[in-house]
Design a protein around this nucleic acid. Sequence first.
DNA 1: TCTGGGGTCCTAGGACCC
DNA 2: TCTGGGGTCCTAGGACCC
Length: 406
Amino acid sequence: MSRDWPNTWPNDDWRCPILHIDMDAFYASVAVRERPDLQGRAVIVGGGHRGVVLSASYAARVHGVRSAMPVMRARRLCPHAVLVAPDFALFSAVSAAVMETFRSVTPLVEAMSLDEAFLDVSGAGRRLGSPARIGARLRAQIATEQQISCSVGVAATTDLAKLASRRAKPDGLLVVPRDRATAFLHPLDVGELWGVGEVTAEQLHRLGLRTVGDLAHTPLALLRRALGAATADHLHTLSWGGGRSTVSPRRSSDEPDRSMGADETFSRDTDDPDVIHRELLRLSAKLAGRLRTGALVGRTITLRVRFADFTTITRSHTLRDSTDVAVEIYATATRLFDALGLQRARLRLVGVRVEGLRTAAGSSRQLELGAREHGWAEAERAVDKAVARFGSNAISPAALIGVPRP
DNA sequence: TCTGGGGTCCTAGGACCC
DNA sequence: TCTGGGGTCCTAGGACCC
């Protein structure tokens, strides 16, 4: 942490009510909490045959281990690291408790993932003090209640708060006062901005733009030509400290997710049509089950295929009526797959996604003249009930019984 | 033995309608 | 006969985020 941006409150600013709170190395920290013998050691959460690093303790990061890195590479970088399989049920439980703590301060909590959230604390000032004081209090409370640390960014916009929390890591708090927003932003590398990934950063670098300040002083028209209108406008706004200054508690059933999907990387690349079709069936069943659980239906089915060389293609088809029926999703996905006419190409991954989601209650099927009875929907609902009662091993598609997962 | 699985949003072309 | 735009939907691909 630099002298310019101390982890203290002199920079406090009551006009900066947005907090971004981010757990430090969340999965790894929770894993260590469960196994005190791992305290202080290099810990990598991840695994699976072809898995990536989901989270790494700071002792592992010292060796260059990063999230999303192939586990095999991480092990080469840090051979003495302890590899821990993720326990999402546990992570979810800890996350829920943390979010509850946030909500004890303000109802305006927007969870971005299991391990981070935006808070608008403008309504809590009279009761709890300045935004920075509230951030400090929450940090202490999380540490006491959950034995994990987090970092807090305090600013006037969500984007600035996010950058601030990143700067504060690990286990810190940083305020970016309103009148110092550009002074904070402009020296940063453009790649630090939320929404600038590897590709966009490279494009900007080619234009000779390395810092956020460079970006800010570039004519918008030039940026638009290089990046497209939406990205250019967004980044230009951010570069001057603009952006969203509101926090919206996660939308619920009144605004369902826009899509839902399931995909799976084979443990070994395969060119076996039977294996691929069986996997499409399994994914379709899984997806349909999740749709029904969420009381959602969707109309556009998208098939995703990743080849051994990692190139990925998609094919989609929009149905006349929305569906939550595995048989229908599977039939569509299979048709799309077969239409590719692959001559035993080696595949790494297949996936199925349903888009254009709506709540099931608000949708109605058009009656089909001369159509066979739509018995599948009822059959699958019966399966749902059996699974709820006897567990997911009770029933599965006939084609999957006795077949080990690919 | 590189590169998971869950998402969101944007772009661009073509179809189709008015 | 020639030549229009605007709006919406569908499809494919790609960047980005956690």
